[in-house]
Computed example of a mutant assay.
Amino acid sequence: MDKIKVVCGIIYKDDRVLICRRKASKSLGGYWEFPGGKVEENETYEESLKRELLEELGLEVTIDSHFLDNTHQYETANIELISFKCSTEQSEIKQVDHDRTEWVLISSLLDWQLAPADIPIAKSLMNTYRCL
């Protein structure tokens, strides 16, 4: 099975990060995730992330740094999730692939039903945040 490359943004606002809940009609419906999407052919990871966040949330972001990559085997696909720390000046968010968005405390990330591929990123983020 080929590995699907997916990018996600860890978008900060003060001591909170943005998570989004997938619509019930989508795969992994009801799960929360760091927003992003599939990398298209001939795109860099950064280009893909900026495009996906604009398409799905109407957000323009500044990509600050690469954070962590995680490979996860779902029943139907093997994905490599590539995460980046981001920031935005925008406050309005549109919802295309998600039915809810929340700005949550980093320390509470594991209190949400995160998609399995996002959990290692959340744990690493929480550990990094505790060290600051």
Rank of each mutant, 00 (worst) to 15 (best):
N127S: 14
R21L: 07
A77S: 14
Y74T: 07
E41N: 12
Q113S: 13
P116K: 11
E56S: 02
S65P: 10
T128R: 08
L28P: 06
L105T: 07
L59F: 01
S91V: 12
D2Y: 11
T62V: 14
I19V: 09
A77R: 15
C8L: 05
S87D: 09
D99W: 06
Y129G: 07
N70C: 11
G30R: 01
K3I: 15
S107E: 15
Y74A: 05
W32E: 02
I19S: 04
H72E: 14
A115M: 11
L68K: 15
K3G: 01
S91L: 12
I11V: 10
D14N: 13
V7G: 05
L59Y: 05
T44K: 06
K85D: 13
I11G: 05
W103L: 14
E75K: 13
E46V: 10
F34E: 02
K94F: 13
D97C: 12
D69F: 06
L18G: 03
E102T: 08
N78G: 00
R100E: 12
T76Y: 13
M1N: 13
E52A: 10
E52G: 05
I82K: 13
C131E: 15
S83N: 10
L68M: 14
A117P: 02
I121G: 00
H98T: 09
Q95T: 09
I106M: 08
I11E: 04
Q95P: 09
E89P: 06
W32G: 02
F34S: 02
I93H: 00
I106K: 04
E89D: 13
K123M: 09
E75D: 15
R100H: 13
D69A: 13
L28V: 03
G29E: 05
Y12H: 14
Q90M: 15
Y129A: 10
K23H: 07
P35S: 06
F34Q: 00
M1E: 12
I11D: 00
L53R: 00
E33R: 05
T128A: 10
L57Y: 03
D69V: 01
S83V: 10
L114F: 08
I10S: 04
D111M: 09
A117L: 00
Y129S: 09
R21D: 02
Y31G: 06
C20S: 03
Q73I: 14
T44V: 02
E80I: 12
K5P: 11
V96R: 13
S108F: 06
S108C: 11
H66T: 07
K3W: 06
E55I: 08
E47I: 01
